[in-house]
């Protein structure tokens, strides 16, 4: 069966390198040299600053972060500060929305959320979206505030989208302490390992990866 979405696992890739790769895939997609792609990967620790990053959302001075071996990138994107690190499954989707029959970026964001919710369900984690707060969330039975398990943000060049999502699979959530993720004060991050009460190891990360692959292949393939 032909597939509309080629899915590749790239392993660990530095942020800047992955961004360059996306940009060249966007050009390929626009020129019709390539179809839609999903790149799955992990980033070494990196803090990325969007255009609307407010200084109060960075809790640790940037030079101190760099001294600790964390990359810092200013990125031409909207939104606030984010963090990526080991154990976080990053998915970059390069897709021509118009060719998919939906020149609608809102529908695209909702579709990515739905794909992640389906993947999480396959892992035994019940999750949901929240109106007005793009991302995927898990209800905390002991609090009114849901915890965030995946962050989403996309870029558009014409109708070709890039960037995508970051799913906290097995990452050490303490690493988020240096920033206020996405500028969402008071929203706590969670991970698949934390929700399932399982050890954060490579086997669980692989399970997360295959769940995401299956969900995105069935939804977008």
């Amino acid at each position: 069966m032909s597939s509309l979405l080629q899915i590749d696992w790239l392993g660990t890739v530095r942020y800047g390198e992955a961004l360059d790769q996306q940009k060249s895939l966007v050009e390929d997609r626009k020129a019709g040299r390539s179809g839609d792609r999903l790149l799955l990967l992990e980033h070494p620790p990196v803090v990325t600053l969007g255009r609307s990053t407010r200084p109060e959302n960075i809790r640790t001075p940037l030079d101190e972060l760099q001294a600790r071996g964390i990359d810092v990138h200013e990125v031409a994107r909207g939104g606030d500060v984010t963090y990526h690190g080991r154990g976080q499954l990053v998915g970059y989707l390069v897709a021509d929305l118009e060719a998919r029959g939906a020149a609608d970026v809102t529908a695209w964001l909702r579709g990515i959320e739905a794909g992640l919710i389906e993947a999480l369900a396959g892992l035994g984690v019940a999750s949901r979206r929240i109106e007005g707060m793009t991302g995927v969330y898990v209800d905390d039975p002991e609090s009114d505030v849901p915890r965030k398990i995946a962050s989403i943000g996309v870029g558009l060049r014409g109708w070709v989208s890039y960037h995508g999502f970051a799913l906290n699979a097995t990452m050490d959530l303490a690493e988020f302490a240096d920033i206020v993720p996405c500028g969402l004060q008071g929203v706590e991050m969670t991970s698949v390992a934390k929700e399932l009460g399982l050890a954060s190891d490579a086997l669980l990360f692989d399970r997360c990866r295959s769940a995401v692959e299956a969900a995105f292949a069935s939804r977008f393939g």
Binding site: G78, G79, V105, L109
Partner: peptide
């Protein structure tokens, strides 16, 4: 034609307008 002119941001989306 199709050259990127401007970057526009909305919630969670960054669009480059050609």
């Amino acid at each position: 034609i199709d050259q990127p002119l401007v970057e526009v941001t909305t919630d969670k989306v960054d669009a480059e307008i050609p």
